[in-house]
Design a protein around this nucleic acid. Sequence first.
DNA 1: ACAAAATGTCACTTATAAATGACATTTTGT
DNA 2: ACAAAATGTCATTTATAAGTGACATTTTGT
Lengths: 64, 64
Amino acid sequence: MKNKKIKIARVEADVSQEKLAAMVGVTRQTINLIESGNYNPSLKLCTAICKVLNKTLDDLFWEE
Amino acid sequence: MKNKKIKIARVEADVSQEKLAAMVGVTRQTINLIESGNYNPSLKLCTAICKVLNKTLDDLFWEE
DNA sequence: ACAAAATGTCACTTATAAATGACATTTTGT
DNA sequence: ACAAAATGTCATTTATAAGTGACATTTTGT
């Protein structure tokens, strides 16, 4: 189950996986894993991603 | 920096740390660490806690 | 006041998020 | 069509979330 919401928000912000990774202080592979789904990132990383993309946790990481 | 929001939500739901831990499938110590702060739980655990307490990620885990 | 329940915290172990380096494939721009 | 950038994915290592068992302290109910 892919996380499309992050990818959409990232593309809207016009940043590559590598750029987003640098902005939040992780590697490109970690961002790739999150967008690929089947991954369980830490709260801090989720929060960091939200802040650089101007979204909230509910926007990007909440699943019914 | 303690996470008061979780503790408040937990007490409102009238469950002990141990009960909440059982409800989300972790140990009491893990819940204790989260409420104590200075901890970085996984997204899945955050989501599980939100669901059993009828809250959202933004409710319990969003800072500023 | 007392016992029981709940909480705080410790040391140690186990599971897994995240890092690293690499290479193949896909997408994008000219 | 071509090169460069971006993405997907692998194997291995490192950092840390979470588990386990234990004991001390605090809170709660009677």
